[in-house]
Structure formats: C-alpha cells, structure tokens
Amino acid sequence: IHPSPKKAYTKIVSNLLLAEPEKIYAMPDPTVPDSDIKTLTTLCDLADRELVVIIGWAKHIPGFSSLSLGDQMSLLQGAWMEILLLGVVFRSLPYQEGLVYAEDYIMDEVQSRMSGLRDLYLCILQLVQRYRKLHMDKEEYVTLKALALANSDAVHIEDIQSIQKLQDVLQEALQEHESSQHWEEPQRAGQLLLTLPLLRQTASRVVQHFHAIRAQGRVPMHKLFLEMLEAKV
C-alpha cells in the first residue's frame, strides 16, 4: 500500500525539520581587540563552518543525493548565500533590532556600520521584516530553504528535469503544509514564494560585498568560503 500523496508531502516537511542542523556559534576570539577586521573575520569563519553543515544538510533533502555530483555542486554554488541568509533571517525574527548571525553574535545597526556593513544590514533587515510580516513558521522556513537550493536557474545544470521534479515535490510539500496549517490564508504559499526574488537579490549583494573584501586582502578567509565565493563571479 502506497501512502497517500498528502502524507508523503507532510513527511517531506517532517524530514526537513529533522534535518535541521544544530546551532553554530560564532565564538569571536576574546584575545583580539574589537575592530572591523575582527568582525569580518568572525563572520567569514562562521560562514565557512556553516557551509560545511549546509553541504551535509543538502544530502538530507529527498532527491538531492540522486542528482549528479555536478548538479549537486551547481545547486550549492548557486544557492549557498541564500541558504545562509535565510538562517540569519529566521534566527532574527524574534528580535526587533539586530541580525542574529549566531546566538552569540547579534549585530545592530551601530556595530554593522563600524564594520562597513550598514548597507547590508539594512538590506537583510528588509528581508527579515518581509518574513516577520508573514509570521513565517519553522516548517515554512525549512521548506523555503530547500526550495532556494532546488533552483533550476542555477548555471551549468545537466539534468534540468530532475531539478524541476525536486522543486515540484518541495512546492507541493509547502502547499500541503499551508492547506493543513494555514487554511485560512489561501495566498500564503504564493506570498512565501514571492519572497524568493528579494532573497536572491540580497544574497547577490552580500556576495558582491564579500568579493570586494576579499580583493582588499585584509580579512583572512577559509578555503571552502573562498571556493564558494569564487564560484559566484
């Protein structure tokens, strides 16, 4: 007996919830005095460690591991910053002011300005406000994160059909969640999907900013972070 499609989609969201990684802490070096370089170094180090976790997380998305290695790489190279940003956004939802890069690393506008990150702070805050207005729940967050990864517009995709299928399954899972948990808001799935352009635009601005920081050569960056940055030229 096959499970009904409804149950299968509910199971996808439950699996995505189970696949959620453990919290990662920024752990800024207490022996180094505060400076813009220290902040940027801490953020790049945090992103590098989160990337390792994101790669492991992607393998838990149903269908991802069946894609060719090349397509798995292309999807991650295309969406990593969107995935990182969604994490920051979700963690920041309960806070009125400040971006929660990690539970031990919350930056407000003043701290962001001192590190040359005020513009990015404002852009990311706009994204936070968009999701806060929607009262995004955890199920929606994990499904949107998987949808950001399953991006058929990513460059160098070999098997577009498989990625389209992955996208359809995730979208159905989101729709199913909405009709069972938010049935009084029939537009909700659409509203959530319509946040993805702003997410992509913001991710692109953050990547550009870190490209510029990299070009200045004052901030040490780990290899995986550099590799992913280089993939987005």
């Binding site: 990684p21 390792v52 976790v53 790669i55 492991g56 997380w57 393998k59 290695l69 798995q72 790489m73 991650l76 190279q77 290899k223 995986l224 590799e227 992913m228 280089e230 993939a231």
Partner: peptide
C-alpha cells in the same frame, strides 16, 4: 571540479559528522 575540490570532497563523503 579541481577548482572546487573541498565542495566536491564534502559531497562525496558520508555524513557531515564524519568531517
């Protein structure tokens, strides 16, 4: 692949806890 060897390696490895 050569340019993206860490990503390649991490995808080929088992669970993230092995890393």
């Amino acid at each position: 692949t050569e340019r993206h060897k860490i990503l390649h390696r991490l995808l080929q490895e088992g669970s993230p806890s092995d890393i």
